[in-house]
Computed example of a mutant assay.
Amino acid sequence: MSEILTLPIGMISISGGTQSRVALHQETVDDYAEVIRLGGELPAVVVFNDGESSGMWLADGFHRFHAHRAAGAAEIVCDVRAGSQRDAILFSAGANVAHGLRRTNDDKRRAVSILLGDEEWSKWSDREIARVCGVGNKFVGDVRASVCVPNTDESPVRVVVRNGTTYEQNTANIGKAKAAAPAPVSSAAAAQSPETASASPMPGTAKPTPAPVQPEPMDVEPAQHVVTEIDALREQVAELSESLRATLADNEMMGRVFDADDQLKAAMDEAARQKAIAVNAERTLAAKSGEFIERAKAVTYWQRRAEKAEKQLARLETAA
């Protein structure tokens, strides 16, 4: 549940590690600040309120926040949500997926690294972290491989969220192939072996009755290995399906980003047009004011000439 409020900028904290971008784009801040100076409105920033006096954590809208500061604004419109600093960090990891300035690959890597560096969130599956951060499963796997040091004592248990259900999964056997069992020796090959040849009866002697062949016990380990491989393949198929879904979602969201950018550009163009109209109106007013003053001076000049002529006419009439 959230509430739209206008808050003083000084109430909002931006130093709690809730910024998931590598750096701010100063040109974007300047563009937003110009919109604010011209009276335009920007979308509300998202903050999480933990109920304490210093608990207004900015989670989304850092460019808009700094633009308000640059424009000299004392207040900013906020989408206030109940939550802690950790809630703000988790929200920030997936912010700007569908709006605002498009994230770079470094921005995405930083967001994923923040979750992988956390004791609790690092236990999540690659698919869950990818969902939160708005990236692909393979991207998370590559980042995990680059930032996590292999540790044989590390528990292979991962927290997995699937179809709305959260459970723990042992990933120790996923991706591991079991060594193949040696091929059984055929009866024909055994007959040609040196041991068999030395045990052959001499010519003219009775052929001994062969001992009955005992069936070998069935090895259940390969069956269990097959089951493990099937589970691993199912997990890989599920991850590929999720990666495809995330890719399609990224494409759709990119369309929304372009639409949002077009709308912002249109708003800025309209603001610039209105500013040009205002400047032209001021110039026209100044010109008209100057013209009025000149005409007023001319009227005063001719009034004085008329008064002087009337006086001269009166003197002439008196003299006559």
Results as ranks from 00 to 15, higher is better:
Val299Lys: 04
Glu252Trp: 05
Ala130Ser: 01
Tyr32Asn: 04
Pro150Gln: 04
Val227Tyr: 04
Arg283Pro: 02
Arg110Gln: 15
Ile36Gln: 01
Phe62His: 15
Phe62Thr: 07
Lys108Trp: 01
Lys178Met: 12
Glu119Gln: 12
Met218Ala: 13
Glu119His: 11
Glu52Leu: 10
Val112Gly: 01
His68Val: 03
Trp121Cys: 01
Val135Thr: 10
Val22Trp: 04
Gly290Asp: 14
Glu282Trp: 04
Lys176Gln: 14
Val257Arg: 04
Leu264Tyr: 06
Ala191Trp: 10
Gln214Glu: 14
Leu5His: 05
Ser243Arg: 02
Lys288Tyr: 08
Asp142Pro: 01
Glu27Phe: 03
Phe292Val: 14
Val279Pro: 00
Ala199Tyr: 05
Ala278Ile: 05
Val279Leu: 12
Ser243Asn: 10
Arg273Ile: 11
Asn280Thr: 12
Arg304Leu: 13
Asp87Gly: 02
Ser113Phe: 04
Arg131Ala: 11
Val97Leu: 07
Ser53Phe: 05
Ala286Trp: 03
Met202Glu: 15
Pro222Tyr: 07
Gly39His: 06
Val185Phe: 03
Arg273Cys: 12
Lys138Leu: 12
Arg81Asn: 03
Leu248Gly: 02
Ala190Ile: 14
Phe48His: 00
Val157Met: 15
Lys275Val: 13
Ala232Ser: 15
Ala246Gln: 09
Val97Ser: 02
Thr165Lys: 14
Ala88Pro: 06
Ala88Asp: 06
Glu128Pro: 00
Leu5Arg: 09
Lys178Phe: 14
Asp31Arg: 08
Asp142Val: 11
Arg234Asp: 10
Glu168Trp: 09
Gly39Asn: 09
Thr247Gly: 13
Val45Glu: 01
Asp107Trp: 10
Glu282Leu: 13
Met218His: 03
Ala145Thr: 06
Gln263Leu: 14
Asn137Val: 08
Glu239Trp: 01
Glu294Ala: 15
Glu310Ala: 10
Met202Val: 11
Ala189Lys: 11
Val149Cys: 04
Glu270Leu: 12
Asn163Thr: 06
Leu24Ser: 02
Ser125Val: 02
Val147Gly: 08
Gly94Glu: 03
Gly10Gln: 14
Leu58Ile: 06
Cys78Lys: 00
Ala130Arg: 00
Ile76His: 00
Leu316Gly: 04
Pro210Glu: 12
Ala179His: 10
Glu307Trp: 04
Glu317Tyr: 04
Arg109Glu: 11
Tyr32Val: 01
Val35Arg: 02
Ala98Phe: 05
Ala211Ser: 06
Asp79Phe: 09
Ser2His: 07
Gln19Arg: 11
Ala188His: 07
Asp50Ile: 01
Glu119Val: 09
Glu252Val: 08
